[in-house]
C-alpha cells in the first residue's frame, strides 16, 4: 500500500509540475518561481526513481540538490510574495554557511546534511508563517500552497534530521525505508494541497 503511495507521489509530482507549467507564460512571478520549484522536485524524484531501478545504490547526493534547490527557489518565492528585502540577505547568508560546510567537510556529500536541511527548512517555515499571518487580513495568492509548505516542511524536518541514523548507528535499511515511506505520506498531503491550489485558482476555466 505504502509502496503505491510512494510511486504515486513520483508521478503525481510530474503531473502537477505539468499542470502548473501549462499556464507558465501569462502568470505572476511567484507562480513562475513555484512552477520551476515543482519541475525541480519532479526531476529529482524521477532521477531518484531511475537510479533506484538501476540499483546503483547511491541516491543520497540528490538530497543535497533537493534541499538546497528547494531553499533557493522557495526563498525567492516568498521574497516575491512578502516583498521583504531581508529574505534575500538571509538567502545569501545561509548559502554562505552551506558553502562553508561543504568545502570544509567533503564527506558530507555522502550523508544527509542534517544541520543544513534543518536550517533551510526552518527558515522556510518561518516565511510561510509570516505569509499566513499576512493573508489573514488580505486575500493572497498561494494560500493553500503556503499551508502545504508549512505543514510538510515542519513535520518532515524531523525525518531528515534522523536520516543519518542509518549510517551512524547501523540501523537496518528497513528503518531508512520506513522513514522514506513516512515522508512520502506527508509529501502526498503537500501535493494534494498544491493540486487544490491549482484547481481553485489556476485551472483553465471555460468561461
Amino acid at each position: 500500500m505504502v509502496k503505491y503511495i510512494v510511486n504515486f507521489t513520483i508521478y503525481f509530482s510530474l503531473f502537477i509540475a505539468l499542470l502548473y507549467f501549462i499556464r507558465f507564460s501569462n502568470k505572476s512571478k511567484a507562480y513562475r518561481v513555484f512552477t520551476i520549484y515543482l519541475i525541480l522536485i519532479s526531476i529529482i524524484q524521477l532521477t531518484s526513481e531511475y537510479l533506484f531501478i538501476l540499483k546503483t545504490g547511491h541516491t543520497i547526493f540528490l538530497f543535497h540538490y533537493y534541499f538546497i534547490g528547494q531553499y533557493i527557489l522557495l526563498s525567492i518565492f516568498y521574497f516575491i510574495l512578502l516583498k521583504y528585502k531581508w529574505i534575500l540577505w538571509i538567502l545569501c547568508l545561509v548559502l554562505g554557511v552551506l558553502l562553508f560546510q561543504y568545502t570544509n567537510n567533503s564527506s558530507l556529500y555522502n550523508r544527509y546534511n542534517v544541520i543544513g536541511a534543518v536550517i533551510t527548512q526552518m527558515v522556510l517555515v518561518i516565511y510561510s508563517l509570516i505569509y499566513m499571518y499576512k493573508s489573514i487580513y488580505a486575500k493572497g495568492e498561494f494560500v493553500l500552497v503556503n499551508i502545504g509548505v508549512f505543514v510538510y516542511l515542519l513535520s518532515s524536518t524531523l525525518l531528515f534530521a534522523s536520516g543519518n541514523l542509518v549510517f551512524d548507528f547501523g540501523f537496518p535499511e528497513s528503518v531508512s525505508r520506513m522513514l522514506n515511506d513516512l515522508n512520502a505520506i506527508l509529501y502526498l498531503l503537500f501535493q494534494i494541497l498544491i493540486f487544490m491550489e491549482w484547481y481553485r485558482n489556476y485551472r483553465l476555466k471555460t468561461a
Partner: peptide
C-alpha cells in the same frame, strides 16, 4: 518516539493552520 514526534509536529502544524 520518532513517529510520535512527527505526529505531534503534524498536529501542531494543523492547529496553527486552523488557528489562522
Amino acid at each position: 518516539i520518532l513517529v510520535i514526534a512527527i505526529a505531534l509536529l503534524l498536529f501542531m502544524a494543523t492547529a496553527i493552520v486552523l488557528f489562522f
